[in-house]
Nucleic acid binder design. Structure first.
Lengths: 202, 202
DNA sequence: CCGGTTGGATAGTGTCGCTATCTGGAACTC
DNA sequence: GAGTTCCAGATAGCGACACTATCCAACCGG
């Protein structure tokens, strides 16, 4: 299809398509002449990915480019997969130096495999920010959140394990990680309503 | 303290302080003269809240203003508390018309108390976006996510229940809801590493 | 009584994600 | 083959946002 058809099929405006081409978020079509190129389903798919990452995932253009670069260059072993995925993704908050407290939590939880993760710096920052905002956050609460997070992660891994190729698995993990965050945020708020009516009665 | 001292104590630049005053995010100090005002600990506290909401929570100025307005006007009953809190908070994604599917999920989960929530439109959108990005998302996965979300919410409610006044509870719920989202996102990624090494072996 | 700070107002900055326009050329239509 | 439509590539502009800078008159502290 031609670019105008791609615009119509994807719902993305033609100037925006050109912008994405310039920024390298969308690969060029097959040139059929010096002023004509042919686009296909892969372009449509890529566009859906880009729009989803930007709109629902809240990623910036540079972050989307990094994600795409990672997806185009999948690791050989499933072992490195998460590392590549998490490295391509921006952190939810700016990390600071990891605190003793969070390292202690990792030990308590038996999460020794995370001790080298740069995410611990982000976790330290997130906890500090919550407390700075005046919300009490005892050890037990973090522990409970972590245990619930493990259940979330079990679902994530189960979904990713169904992928048929490393490339597909990487796609699922990267996109799933960033796009399911808002899904979980919404489910959490709904669950708060459920839980609070349960606790407080009608 | 004077405004310049407030700037130094809070780490927020003086022009930014003036900006927050203009935007109504920071209440005016007690005027000691026509060109002099006195600020105190409450201003420092408010500033910490604003910075946390903006930097860690990712809220815009308008959203912060709405949150602050809600906090300054707490509801009488704990029953309305969540409604006020959720109403003041921006949705993680732009909602669309709720689908039959998500309504069905609410019934399956026994979450009938959510059937009127505007969050269902956002949930519909989030699910559609995940699928548009090419990640399979079966019923069972959403169900499992929802059950984990219920555990998260149980912790939220337990934290909020320890507040001593409706105003404090509202503060905890609003701030906790928006600021703990990134915390959960980070814990989820750490848990993914744990879970994947568990499943894939070393 | 005078240098330095303050409140209030207004204007400017940098970033981001597009959006609009221009140009030369190619393709389709009749 | 003339007329119309479309396209790639390049450049410039826009609107929102979160600040940031500057100016001025008032006023305090020494």
């Amino acid at each position: 299809m031609r670019i105008s058809e791609l615009a119509e099929a994807s719902g993305v405006s033609l100037p925006t398509l050109k912008y994405y081409l310039r920024e390298g978020l969308l690969m060029p079509g097959a040139a059929t002449a010096r002023t004509r190129a042919e686009y296909d389903g892969t372009h449509l798919e890529r566009l859906r990915l880009v729009r989803a990452l930007v709109e629902s995932g809240g990623l910036g253009i540079a972050a989307v480019r990094a994600v795409i670069a990672a997806l185009d260059d999948p690791p050989a072993s499933p072992h490195e997969l998460l590392g590549v995925a998490h490295h391509a993704l921006p952190l939810p908050v700016e990390p600071i130096a990891r605190s003793e407290e969070v390292v202690g939590w990792m030990h308590d939880l038996g999460w020794e495999s995370c001790l080298r993760s740069p995410l611990l710096g982000a976790l330290t920052r997130a906890v500090a920010d919550v407390r700075a905002a005046g919300v009490p956050l005892p050890d037990t609460a973090v522990r409970a959140y972590a245990e619930a997070a493990l259940r979330l992660a079990a679902v994530d891994v189960a979904i990713a394990a169904r992928a048929t190729s490393p490339a597909a698995a990487l796609h699922t993990v990267v996109v799933g990680t960033v796009m399911i965050d808002p899904l979980i945020a919404i489910l959490r708020r709904l669950a708060q309503e459920v839980e609070s009516t349960r606790v407080l009665g009608a």
